Simulated scan of single mutants.
Amino acid sequence: MTRVCFQLQVRPERLEEYLARHTPVWPRMLEEIEASGRRNYSLFVRPDGMLIGYYETDSVEASQAYLDRSAIAAEWEAEMAEFFVALDGRPDQVATTLPEVFNLADQLAAAH
């Protein structure tokens, strides 16, 4: 299993609308995320629009390839792109990935 954390910047003046669009996300998009192999998916956002996303998957490449082929994901990502600052492409394809520097379970397992 791979843990993935990513960062995007929501336009602060569009934050309320962005949040409304996620309450709830389209049911068919939820199904596509699940079918792509992503689990434990969460988004967190600061009042200034800094967004952090997290998910777990068995294969980042296979998950992204699935979503790249999905017409539903393409439609969703096209609608979401307008909410982000300085993007050159689909949000799910160009988000900044953050390296993991600490995981409690991994370190506890290594220590025992």
Rank of each mutant, 00 (worst) to 15 (best):
F102K: 05
S59V: 04
G53Y: 02
R69F: 03
R39K: 14
Q107P: 01
Y18Q: 03
G37N: 04
D58F: 06
R3F: 01
Y41K: 07
I52D: 00
P24M: 08
D48G: 02
V60L: 15
F6W: 13
E82N: 00
R90T: 05
R3D: 07
V85G: 04
T57L: 08
T2W: 14
S63V: 04
A35P: 08
Q64P: 02
A81S: 11
E31T: 11
L87R: 08
E79D: 15
D48Q: 03
E79Y: 13
E75S: 11
A86V: 11
V45E: 01
S36T: 00
L98K: 05
P27Q: 08
A78Y: 10
E13L: 04
A78I: 05
R69I: 05
Y54Q: 10
S70Y: 02
E77R: 05
T97H: 13
A65R: 15
M80S: 10
L19Y: 03
E34V: 03
R21S: 07
E61P: 06
E16D: 13
N40F: 10
R14I: 01
P27I: 10
M1Y: 14
V25H: 13
S36W: 09
Q64T: 14
T57H: 05
A71T: 15
T97D: 06
E13Q: 11
E61D: 14
S59I: 03
T2Y: 15
A62K: 11
V60H: 12
E82Q: 11
L108G: 00
A35S: 07
F44S: 13
Y55A: 04
A62I: 04
F6G: 03
L104T: 03
V10C: 00
V4C: 12
A73Q: 13
Q93G: 02
M29R: 08
L67W: 04
G37Y: 06
V85P: 01
L15Q: 02
G89E: 05
Q9M: 14
E61G: 06
Y41L: 10
Y66E: 01
V25G: 10
L19G: 00
I52N: 00
E56T: 14
M80F: 14
R90Q: 14
W26N: 01
Q107A: 07
E13T: 06
Y66V: 07
R46E: 13
T97A: 12
C5M: 12
E61K: 14
F44L: 15
A105K: 13
R38M: 15
W26R: 07
V4W: 11
E34L: 08
E34S: 09
V4R: 14
D92V: 13
A35L: 09
D68H: 08
D106L: 12
V101L: 14
